[in-house]
Design a protein around this nucleic acid. Structure first.
Length: 864
RNA sequence: GGGCAGUUAGCUCAGUUGGUUAGAGCGUCUGGUUUACACCCAGAAGGUCACAGGUUCGAGCCCUGUACUGCCCACCA
């Protein structure tokens, strides 16, 4: 193969990308044993949106490990999936096609919609869930193509035969199988109770999807008359709009101020609703006025008191977060002055809670005797759905749950069986499990997701019987209960008395994502394959989703098989912008990878990723790409030298026994520990350490010193012993280094490999299937007579270089004399390399002045 | 409020179980047409290892405390 004059990353990378596409270098071999196989639980990226530099970063880390393990001879299972199921896709489809999902609408097999550019003229078209899901499928397919092309460009060594998407039939089936299995095991259950609710998406969410946001708020001080007295209890509340939902008042049992009122009733202002006064230690005397109003529902404590005191439900918020119609004076809505209450409520009804709050405060301020004290502004943390824009509410709803609270200890124990890299990430997992306070809410009131595979019977009166569930058989899955009729029923019985109805909900996307190991392995559908792939070797992922993806995956593996899902989990850090801020779309500081790849090359971008250790957040520094590109250029040029210098010399004629020079043996002795240390680092998933060691050796030991030392001999006339020894050594060192760089710089390494080594009988045609260097390859080469030869050579070289630099002379300028003062052992060691040293540094005379004692050797330089 | 990390040269980061004078790259400065490479080579300057105590013959590393930064969790009347 011809070696180009100059290194052109784009040319090299395009060529190999195309060449690899036609080969099956990365194909998993199902016939090989589990022990020989290395299985990666690749994160499926969310396809709606674009990949940013952070993805390139962490996905490169996975590929380093995969490529290393492959070179160690492992049969790599490295699948890639697309996480297309879920809210982000729904939003994209709604905007792109101007449609909205309306579950009651019948399926239209001939539905045609067009993409809209800019703001749509018409209101969104209501379509069936099945149509909506089909449109989502079409849209994500396009994104997946773009993602695939970027991964290919980055040289990711996926086995594309294992490609999947989390919404495809296989994933829906596995996800539904999981649910049915847990239903049989009584690990999932349905319950109607207050649930964390997002009023914009109109769906329940789980504890793991919460995030706190600081919001300005205020304590409003309201007078509650104690029934039958002239005394007022002052309630401090941040949610005055929930006053109509008030069902009780609570004080601390030891609070002297209020002890006398416990057991009496208080009357809410404005609505005149008598409510009981309870004592409970959860009421904090220090907070507000020490008097808490219990509403259905303002916060989690309200739910607890509501349950504890068996309080009535006065639900005022509807699922959109608006105040729904209620009538005081009706059963459950007692009021001593219902007419007044209804007049006030009429002004709130239909408003979002925030507007209702404003209104009720105005009314309270205008009504004498209601406000006890001026409001007090505060800032406090409020719970949000992580993807939501408005605070969560607690709204009673029927939902499916997975039992978690009864197995916290077991889940912590499972976590301890897994290797966490870095290890301290294990603590994050354990703290999360310890802090769990709810079972996992599985159901979402959304559309583009995996349907919950359950139908319910409808009785003769048209009432849905939630405890009379109809579940499909395993063979039927995947099913859509809104489109498919259960066995024994006809479609026209849907929604009719004595008929059936389908569960309208879909699963939390994590319910499916948590099954990536089972999705990839085939699980119960292919037990043989499952056995060969599960538990997996590594799960690579980001640390902020330990509480979701890692946690839920551990939960599923435990509930289904009492197993851990993988032996190790490796956690990449984040890419921060140069100001150390996390990259995010909302911050507007996201860097797209394509221009960087074009400018520096995929190998250089991978190099940048390889410099960051696991778990460490790294500030983006464009200089590092430059360094990566420089490394590629250097590797290209050094390789060109090593190979072209000996054009015409048959590589097969170069054998280990020709390596006779002490300098050469000394250089090889430097490589041995490098190979071991880099492999050790890689075995611990510390690719960054492996890269650093390799790079350091390559640049300093190999290029700056060894090549320069050996170079004069390579110009010998004829095939001298020294020249052959140098040729064999250069080739051997170089062949090892190219392989050690291969996981990081796969394109360039492959290119160089094909210049020189692809035809090697004990290697593979591709560097990526060639063995990682082992000490065995160098076993036939004797150790140098002294381990001091190499360091002493460097000592002389450094002294001479410094002398020349100090004198502003060219490095080629001749040196009259160098006197080395050292002990006899060192003198003997150095003596082996005298010829190479003098030739490299143009030294006329090198005197070795032996002195007894252990004093450090010194070199004195006398310039010409 | 609880927890987990981190704080080392102007910048980005290494620093293995405590062991001479603390490292690299980038940047800066000085020199060098050297037949692989000027996307290069050589050299130099640059650090009270956040701070304060302690253990030790010896601490960047171990212990205690403090400050700051980031993340996770809790609180939400």
């Amino acid at each position: 193969m011809d070696i180009p004059e100059k290194y052109e990353a784009e040319d090299t990378e395009l060529r190999w990308r195309d060449a690899w596409a036609g080969q099956d270098l990365y194909t998993w071999d199902p016939t090989r044993s589990r022990e020989e196989t290395f299985v990666i639980d690749t994160p499926p990226p969310t396809v709606s949106g674009s990949l940013h530099l952070g993805h390139i970063f962490s996905y490169s880390h996975q590929d380093f490990v995969a490529r290393y393990q492959r070179m160690r001879g492992k049969n790599i299972f490295f699948p890639i999936g697309w996480d297309d199921n879920g809210l982000p896709t729904e939003r994209r489809v709604q905007n792109l096609l101007n449609v909205r999902c309306e579950p009651g609408v019948p399926y239209d097999p001939n539905l045609k919609v067009e993409r809209v550019d800019g703001k749509p003229k018409d209101p969104p078209r209501a379509i069936s869930r099945k149509n909506f899901v089909e449109l989502c499928d079409i849209v994500v397919k396009d994104d997946e193509k773009i993602f695939k092309s970027l991964w290919t460009r980055m040289g990711m060594s996926y086995d594309w035969a294992q490609e999947y998407a989390t919404i495809n039939a296989h994933c829906r089936r596995i996800s539904q199988l999981s649910f049915l299995d847990l239903l049989e095991k009584n690990e999932v259950y349905q319950d109607e109770r207050p649930v964390l609710w997002d009023v914009d998406f109109k769906t329940a969410v789980a504890q793991a999807e919460l995030t706190d946001k600081e919001r300005p708020s205020a304590y409003h001080h309201l007078n509650f008359r104690v029934d039958g007295t002239d005394t007022n209890l002052v309630v401090a509340t941040t949610r005055p709009e929930l006053l109509p939902a008030c069902v009780a008042v609570v004080v601390h049992p030891d609070d002297e101020r209020y002890r006398a009122y416990v057991g009496k009733r208080a009357v809410t202002p404005l609505f005149h609703v008598p409510v009981p006064i309870y004592a409970d230690t959860k009421a904090d005397p220090e907070k507000g006025t020490g008097v808490v109003m219990v509403c259905t529902f303002g916060d989690q404590t309200d739910v607890e008191w509501w349950t504890q005191f068996k309080l009535p439900l006065r639900q005022v918020l509807d699922r959109a977060g608006c105040l729904r119609p209620v009538t005081f004076g009706q059963p459950g809505w007692e009021s001593t002055k219902p007419t007044d209450a209804n007049a006030i409520y009429a002004q709130l009804q239909g408003k979002y809670s925030k507007q209702a709050q404003k209104t009720i405060v105005e009314i309270a301020e205008a009504t004498p005797g209601v406000i006890a004290a001026p409001k007090k502004d505060i800032v406090h943390a409020v719970k949000f759905f992580e993807k939501g824009d408005r605070p969560l509410e607690l709204i009673p709803a029927r939902q499916w749950y997975t039992r978690l609270l009864d197995k916290k200890d077991a889940l912590i124990e499972q976590g301890r069986k897994i290797g966490w890299h870095p290890d301290y990430m294990r603590k994050r997992y354990e703290h999360w499990v310890e802090g769990l306070n709810q079972d996992w809410c599985l159901s979402r009131q959304r559309y583009f997701g995996v349907p919950i595979p359950v139908w319910y019977a409808i009785d003769a009166n048209g009432e849905t019987l939630y405890d009379q569930r109809i579940v499909p058989t395993r063979e039927q899955l995947p099913v859509d209960p809104l489109a498919d009729a259960p066995a024994g029923f006809r479609e026209d019985q849907r929604g009719k008395p004595n008929g059936f109805t389908g569960d309208p909900d879909v699963f939390d996307t994590w319910a499916t994502s948590s099954l990536t190991p089972q999705i990839a392995s085939g699980w119960v559908d292919d037990p043989e394959r499952h056995k060969k792939l599960f538990p997996m070797d590594i799960r690579p992922q980001a640390h902020e989703i330990i509480r979701t993806w890692a946690f839920y995956t551990i939960v599923k593996a435990y509930l289904h098989e009492r197993e851990i899902p993988w032996k190790n989990i490796i956690l990449s850090g984040w890419i921060l912008d140069p100001e150390r801020k996390k990259m995010s779309k909302s911050q507007g500081n996201v860097v797209t990878p394509e221009p960087l790849i074009t400018q520096f090359g995929a190998d250089a971008v991978r190099y940048w990723a390889g410099r960051a250790r696991l778990g460490v957040d790294t500030a983006l520094d464009e200089q590092v790409f430059k360094v990566g590109k420089r490394l590629c250029t250097k590797l290209f040029n050094a390789s060109k030298f090593v190979i072209e210098r000996f054009t015409g010399l048959d590589p097969a004629a170069l054998t280990p026994d020709q390596i006779t020079c002490e300098s050469d043996r000394a250089a090889i002795a430097q490589l041995r520990p490098l190979i071991r240390r880099a492999a050790d680092a890689f075995d611990e998933f510390d690719y960054a350490q492996a890269l650093q060691l390799t790079e350091e050796f390559f640049w300093a030991t190999f290029c700056d010193n060894y090549i320069e030392l050996a170079k004069p001999r390579t110009y010998d006339e004829g095939l001298t012993e020294g020249k052959l020894s140098a040729a064999a050594t250069l080739r051997l060192l170089h062949r090892a280094l190219v392989r050690m760089f291969a996981p990081f710089l796969p394109f360039l390494a492959e290119e160089i490999w094909h210049w020189a080594y692809a035809a090697d009988p004990d290697m593979h045609a591709s560097v990526h299937r060639s063995p990682w260097p082992t000490l065995d390859e160098f076993a036939a080469i004797p150790e140098p007579k002294s381990p001091r030869t190499w360091p002493l050579t460097l000592l002389v070289a450094e002294a001479v270089r410094k002398a020349k630099a100090d004198a502003n002379l060219s490095i080629k300028a001749p040196v009259k004399r160098v006197v080395v003062v050292c002990n006899p052992q060192d003198a003997a060691a150095l003596d082996h390399a005298v010829l190479d040293i003098t030739r490299m540094l143009s030294i006329n005379v090198l005197d070795l002045n032996e002195t007894e004692g252990t004093a450090e050797p010194t070199a004195t330089v006398e310039l010409a």
